[in-house]
């Protein structure tokens, strides 16, 4: 099902690639800083095995990190929603967590958790925790006071109201948070790998820069973009399955 917007997207991408190719072929352009689309494509196909096996490592880091962020974020959001003092106390901390410069803490995490997958998961989860938690808290609070009144008159317990009304109402908000998280999570994984790793697309790109393999660096970046796009689409599909009503309303 090819829609108009897909075609428009493809045309735009083609135009950008075209301009990129023209700029890269201009005389005086250093091929060590700008690889042309053709060179990038060659790197993509020649090094496909290497690139995609490393991309697999990065994708696992991203997916697990996101899962951790959702689990911790859901627990934090529900806790802060149910206990007002906790929200008042922890909200500034939550905002502060978003300001932690990942570039600086990434090497510290590697020191603390060693070389393996641990520090990457910690960094991805740290970056994704904020959009997930803040959106969930907003979602839990989005329920109209009238509806809460109705639940109270029906004799619903606090847990029943949370489970039957507030959490389903917060679901579309969770997906909004996840859409943001899905794109930044890829950046988080790359930072984690730059700080110290023996596998992964981030490490491969870093090596590529050091070894002046510019086309391979560009190929890695293209794959990272594709990965973010894939995650974004996966989140949208999950929303269609888990909360179809929220999409109907958007259309109406």
């Amino acid at each position: 099902m090819l829609k108009r917007r897909h075609i428009l997207s493809a045309v735009l991408v083609a135009a950008i690639v075209g301009v990129w190719q023209v700029v890269a072929s201009l005389p005086g352009v250093d091929h060590l800083t700008l690889a042309s689309p053709a060179e990038t494509w060659r790197a993509l196909t020649n090094d496909a095995g290497l690139l995609f096996s490393n991309a697999g490592t990065t994708l696992v880091e991203v997916a697990l990190g996101l899962a951790i962020a959702v689990a911790l974020g859901a627990a934090a959001a529900v806790g802060m929603h149910l206990f007002r003092p906790l929200r008042d106390a922890a909200y500034p901390l939550l905002i502060g967590s978003q300001a932690i410069p990942v570039v600086v803490v990434a090497p510290l995490f590697v020191l603390a958790f060693d070389y393996g997958i641990g520090p990457k998961l910690a960094i991805v989860a740290l970056i994704c925790f904020f959009p997930v938690t803040v959106n969930l808290i907003d979602g839990l609070r989005s329920v109209e006071p009238e509806l809460l009144k109705l639940m109270r008159s029906l004799g619903a317990s606090r847990v029943a109201t949370l489970w039957k009304v507030e959490l389903p109402a917060a679901l579309p908000y969770l997906f909004s948070g996840l859409r943001i998280a899905s794109t930044v999570s890829v950046i988080g994984a790359v930072f984690g790998e730059w700080a110290g790793a023996d596998r992964g697309l981030g490490r491969l790109v870093l090596l590529g820069i050091n070894q002046l393999q510019t086309p391979r660096v560009y190929a890695g970046v293209v794959i990272l973009m594709g990965m973010a796009l894939l995650l974004f689409i996966a989140v949208s599909l999950a929303q269609r399955l888990a909360a179809p009503w929220s999409l109907e309303e958007a259309q109406a």
């Binding site: 009144k149 639940m151 389903p168 009503w245 309303e249």
Partner: peptide, 25 residues
């Protein structure tokens, strides 16, 4: 049993489940 001005039906439940909400509570 209180019936507010607006129906306040839950969009993620079908009609039957919306009515049954009172029993679930």
């Amino acid at each position: 049993a209180y019936m507010p001005q607006r129906d306040l039906l839950l969009p993620w439940r079908d009609a039957l489940a919306n009515a049954a909400l009172a029993l679930e509570c």
